[in-house]
Amino acid sequence: MNNQITFEDFTKVDLRVGTIIEVNEFPEARHPAYQLTIDFGDLGIKKSSAQITTLYKKEDLLQKQIVAIINFPKKQIANFMSECLVLGAVNGKDVTLLNPETKVKNGSVIS
């Protein structure tokens, strides 16, 4: 195990469910990626850059629910401002998105 954290540390991470409502190519990214627009319900719309091009086509991502950390500071990636971190299981260059088993309300808390 790397670094242990306390439960208090974990509670600082705001994990939420959102639905991808727009997907765009991101040719300016250093590594192949998409620009995602994600609806988090009452929390609003956020954008994210995601290196998920090896397993997902743009059309497969539309209306897909995902899990993201929404309380990281914004991060400049090339000419794009990423506002949240979409979570996935990493296996080499392949990233499998984490998502709820059944559809839930956008903005739902992951705990």
Score class of each variant (00 low, 15 high):
Gln4Trp: 12
Phe26Lys: 03
Lys64Asp: 05
Glu22Gln: 14
Ala33His: 06
Ile77Pro: 08
Thr102Val: 14
Asn79Val: 10
Met81Asp: 13
Gln51Val: 11
Asp9Lys: 04
Glu83Gly: 03
Arg30Lys: 15
Lys93Thr: 15
Ser49Asp: 04
Val104Ser: 00
Phe7Gly: 02
Thr6Tyr: 03
Thr54Cys: 10
Gly107Asp: 03
Ile52Lys: 02
Lys93Ala: 13
Asp94Pro: 07
Ile20Thr: 06
Ile70Pro: 08
Ile45Cys: 04
Lys47Gly: 12
Gly18Asp: 06
Asp42Ser: 14
Ile77Asn: 09
Val13His: 03
Val23Thr: 11
Asn91Leu: 10
Gln65Cys: 07
Ala89Asp: 08
Leu43Met: 09
Lys64Tyr: 08
Glu8Leu: 12
Arg30Phe: 15
Gly41Met: 04
Asn91Asp: 15
Val23Ile: 12
Arg16Met: 02
Leu55Pro: 08
His31Asn: 15
Phe10Asp: 00
Ile45Asn: 07
Val90Pro: 05
Thr19Glu: 12
Ser49Pro: 09
Asn71Pro: 07
Asn99Ile: 00
Lys93Trp: 06
Ser82Tyr: 04
Glu22Lys: 15
Ile66Tyr: 00
Val104Cys: 00
Lys105Ala: 12
Asn71Ser: 06
Tyr56Cys: 09
Ser108Lys: 03
Phe72Tyr: 14
Phe40Pro: 05
Lys74Leu: 07
Ala33Lys: 03
Ala68Phe: 00
Val23Ser: 08
Gln51Glu: 15
Ile20Gly: 04
Lys12Glu: 01
Asp42Trp: 01
Asn24Ser: 15
Glu8Phe: 08
Glu8Gln: 13
Gly44Glu: 03
Gln76Lys: 14
Glu25Thr: 15
Glu25Cys: 09
His31Leu: 14
Lys75Arg: 14
Asp14Ile: 03
Phe72Lys: 09
Ile20Glu: 00
Thr37Cys: 06
Gln76Cys: 07
Gln76Glu: 14
Gly88Glu: 09
Val13Phe: 07
Arg30Tyr: 15
Ser82Gln: 05
Val67Asn: 04
Val90Gln: 13
Pro27Cys: 13
Asn79Met: 06
Lys64Pro: 06
Lys57Asp: 13
Gln35Glu: 14
Asn2Tyr: 05
Val67Ala: 04
Pro100Tyr: 03
Gln76Arg: 13
Val23Asn: 06
Phe80Asp: 05
Met1Leu: 13
Asn71Glu: 07
Asp39Lys: 05
Asp94Glu: 13
Lys57Val: 09
Val13Arg: 01
Ala50Gln: 06
Thr102Phe: 02
Val109Ala: 01
Ser82Pro: 09
Glu22Ser: 14
Gly44Pro: 06
Glu8Gly: 07
Ile70Lys: 01
Gln76His: 10
Val95Arg: 03
Glu101Cys: 04
Thr19Arg: 11
Val109Thr: 10
Glu28Gln: 15
Ser49Arg: 02
Asp14Pro: 01
Asp60Tyr: 10
Gln65Met: 06
Asn24His: 15
Lys46Tyr: 03
Arg30Leu: 15
Asp42Pro: 12
Thr96Gln: 12
Gln76Asp: 10
Glu101Thr: 11
